[in-house]
Amino acid sequence: MPERTRILVVDDESRVRSMIHQYLTAEGYDVTTVGTGHEALEAVRRDDVQLVILDWMLPGGLNGLEVCREIRKISSVAVIMLTAKTEETDMIVGLEMGADDYVTKPFRMRELTARIRTVLRRTQQGGEASPANVLTRGSLVIEPDKFTVRKDGEDVILTPAEFKILVTLATRPGVVFSRLQLSEVALGDDYIHYERSIDTHISHLRKKIESNPSQPEYIQTVYGIGYRFGVPV
């Protein structure tokens, strides 16, 4: 059995810490949480950590950026910064300080876990392929990173929005997503008020991947709620 990935979460808000802790544990990671920069450095020195999630704003004299720089001096562990600031320059500074990626607050746990997977794949090259890399669902084979979908071995051409919707749904078969959630994923925050347009994307998507679009087996409508990915029998 392969050793589980250990993630260190550094955030001064205990509630955020415990939430991330719960989520990542449920996702199958080993999680350590600390509240200050000094504790973070200690943990990096002490434990075999594969990834650090680091809050930008930390109390106690050592802020996220400084912690990141210190970590880089002692380790090549992957770092994802959590930042409330959305200014480009801050991110560039963050990345220059050695962070591998950044996520802005308020962030979605789904987005964070996606970034974690990507960063881990990048930093753990040569390691075993993550199962999330290829989604096989019935006759569909989806490769999120390569942006490809094959149905019965044949390539299906999807628009970016359709692809994002498909990946979101297919990652969690059986889970119902609301239109609003899907439009946030597919179209971004700016289009969040156009949730109905998601229906159009869905119908296009069905035409491309369903054998019988009027009786979809993959993308199912949950009447009055939203859509879910059906598990084909």
Binding site: E13, R15, V16, M19, Q22, P106, R108, M109
Partner: peptide
Amino acid sequence: RTPITIIQGQ
């Protein structure tokens, strides 16, 4: 930000 992040995560 914090409450929303937590609520969404949960």
